[in-house]
């Protein structure tokens, strides 16, 4: 394969940028949370690419831990969103602006 490390890093960086666009552009808390997961995946892709082209296993193990932490984070974050919806009947960020009033 003639594809080098830089090509994978471009893909990871663009995926991170798309995730950041989702977090800043969208008003739906659930979609913002999905975009955060996408940014985590972009970092995973960069770590695996570095690990492959460095010849060591450590990057792969870091990705292993990141996937575990992301699963725990999704469970807690969705529980918080459900609790917020019970209190406010909305998940749009326009209706969750108590601190800015």
């Amino acid at each position: 394969m003639t594809i080098g490390l830089n090509a994978f890093l471009i893909i990871a960086g663009l995926l991170f940028a798309i995730g950041m666009l989702g977090v800043t552009l969208r008003r739906n808390t659930l979609v913002m949370f999905m975009s955060l997961e996408m940014m985590l995946t972009a970092v995973n892709l960069a770590l695996v690419a570095f690990s492959r082209y460095n010849g060591t296993m450590d990057g792969n193990l870091f990705v292993f831990f990141i996937i575990t932490v992301a699963a725990a984070e999704v469970a807690v974050g969705l529980a918080i969103i459900v609790a917020l919806f019970k209190r406010r009947q909305s998940v749009m960020v326009e209706h969750l602006n108590v601190l800015s009033r």
Partner: peptide
């Protein structure tokens, strides 16, 4: 603001990693 941030970040990524002087092309082990 969101679109500007996206364009700036993706432009930075592309210009950084397509420049051959930034990271040397390493062969896979």
């Amino acid at each position: 603001a969101a679109l500007t941030g996206f364009v700036i970040l993706s432009g930075l990524v592309i210009s950084l990693f397509t420049d051959p002087a930034s990271l040397p092309a390493t062969p896979a082990f």
